[in-house]
Nucleic acid binder design. Structure first.
Lengths: 206, 206
DNA sequence: GTCTATAGTGCGATAGAC
DNA sequence: GTCTATCGCACTATAGAC
């Protein structure tokens, strides 16, 4: 995705270095914040010189922007994949919850970075992110409403229940330290979010 | 609280100016992040000169630190007030949810700032904040367990249900833009969080 | 109690050797 | 493709006039 913007043309060199840059950015941003991280820090952490960094990124802000772009594209692909399957309401909710949580597991640093550093991005990218959050919530709300019409669910406030699920999903990347401390694993958490949702929908848990 | 550290001794001058400084900090941090905000920005926003600012704060980092300290003290006072009342499990949960949400309503900028800028604070303050989150969750979990023992509640995973409530509470300051957009008011949201919790506890809603 | 002026530092970014 | 050296700037913080 980032190919065309890069000065380094040899992929065998470019890809491992880009990976190093992303990982170091996540690490340093998690301790100092992206604005608090200097390119000198990043240079030390990656082992790439200041000058060298600039053949991989256009500018410091460009680096944050690229990370957000890659993350957004990935999520869109996965979500669209699920929606294409046209599952029944219950299975659809299950698929969304489990895939989002497993996705966060794999890309947890990306999620966390994008959430915490959203402010530093361009207005355009901020709007994309907010729209994405609304869209995610509306998809869940839509499925709940479909289930209500099909007499499978009972729920007074579908919009608030949807936001409850979104809140629980986000906790999985925002508060990983807490779940690790409590010894809750990915599978357990996803199962809980799903069963709690079914309880609030007055639906039977299989 | 911040009195002893300040150079300005006349309260009638100091308090309004400190207020201006806090509000401007919240505003600028919400758009650029605290690290991204310069004291020149803060000087322009408050109308106080660079030199003037330094008679109110010890340093830039000190400003963030003071904000976190004030916020923490406030929350502790309110929580302790509720726990002293020794209410029945249901009423206790209700009191915690409603007071926390109304508190966030009043001090929303403070909550948001402390959440987003936690990284920039000293290790000591970070630990305080994390402990506070754990403590808040444990209080809720404890009340749920009390209610289970008293045969008032049924719940398989008290610790996950407690984290669900904490997640929902945090959304109220993290995502205020969303609730405003959806036209959800404070009272409605607090009621929903409470009734959703009772549903998950298989308890009757009065 | 508030200001302007400025010291001193560390930043993002680039040029050009290798 | 990677490095070192360096430019110019914006930052935090302070000194001292008013």
């Amino acid at each position: 995705m980032h190919k065309e913007k890069m000065q380094i043309k040899n992929e065998k060199i470019a890809i491992p270095n880009l990976q190093k840059i992303f990982e170091a950015t996540f690490k340093l941003s998690n301790t100092h914040g992206f604005q608090g991280m200097s390119l000198r820090d990043l240079s030390k952490e990656t082992g790439i010189s200041m000058g060298g960094l600039y053949s991989y990124i256009g500018s410091k802000n460009d680096l944050a922007s690229v990370i957000e772009g890659v993350q957004r594209k990935y999520i869109e692909q996965v979500l669209d994949g699920i929606l294409k399957e046209k599952l029944a309401p219950k299975e659809s909710l299950r698929a969304i919850i489990f895939s989002e949580i497993y996705m966060m597991e794999i890309m947890s640093s990306w999620y966390y970075f994008c959430f915490m550093e959203l402010k530093g991005l361009s207005k355009e990218q901020q709007n994309f992110a907010l729209d994405n959050e609304l869209r995610g919530e509306e998809i869940i709300m839509g499925i709940i409403k479909d289930g209500i019409e099909a007499k499978q669910f009972i729920c007074e406030h579908p919009e608030l229940l949807a936001s409850q699920v979104v809140a629980q999903l986000q906790q999985w990347h925002l508060k990983q330290w807490k779940f690790k401390l409590r010894g809750v694993n990915t599978e357990e958490y996803a199962s809980y979010v799903y069963s709690s949702l079914l309880t609030c929908l007055s639906a039977e848990i299989n």
